[in-house]
Amino acid sequence: MADGLIDNNGASVTVSLQVTRPISSYTVNLADESPVGRADFVDSPDGDRIFFHTEIDQEFGGQGLAGLLVREALADSIRKNLTVVPVCPLFARHLRKHGEEFVADGGVFHRPTPADIALVKRSVAEAL
Results as ranks from 00 to 15, higher is better:
residue 78 I to T: 10
residue 89 P to R: 13
residue 111 R to Y: 15
residue 21 R to M: 08
residue 43 D to M: 12
residue 10 G to Q: 03
residue 1 M to L: 11
residue 124 V to M: 05
residue 76 D to L: 14
residue 84 V to I: 13
residue 102 F to K: 11
residue 106 G to C: 04
residue 9 N to V: 02
residue 70 V to W: 02
residue 120 V to A: 09
residue 72 E to M: 01
residue 25 S to K: 04
residue 122 R to L: 13
residue 34 S to T: 08
residue 54 T to W: 07
residue 69 L to N: 04
residue 48 D to K: 15
residue 48 D to A: 14
residue 113 T to L: 15
residue 120 V to F: 10
residue 74 L to C: 10
residue 111 R to V: 12
residue 2 A to G: 00
residue 113 T to N: 14
residue 119 L to M: 10
residue 90 L to W: 10
residue 109 F to V: 09
residue 104 A to I: 12
residue 49 R to E: 01
residue 28 V to T: 10
residue 53 H to M: 12
residue 60 F to S: 11
residue 79 R to P: 04
residue 77 S to E: 08
residue 45 P to N: 09
residue 30 L to Q: 10
residue 121 K to L: 04
residue 42 V to C: 02
residue 117 I to K: 03
residue 51 F to P: 02
residue 10 G to W: 02
residue 112 P to Q: 00
residue 59 E to P: 14
residue 9 N to Q: 02
residue 42 V to Y: 04
residue 72 E to G: 00
residue 36 V to P: 15
residue 78 I to M: 09
residue 63 Q to F: 03
residue 38 R to Y: 12
residue 41 F to G: 03
residue 20 T to H: 09
residue 25 S to F: 08
residue 31 A to F: 15
residue 120 V to R: 06
residue 19 V to Y: 04
residue 36 V to A: 13
residue 92 A to T: 01
residue 93 R to L: 09
residue 97 K to M: 13
residue 107 G to D: 03
residue 109 F to C: 05
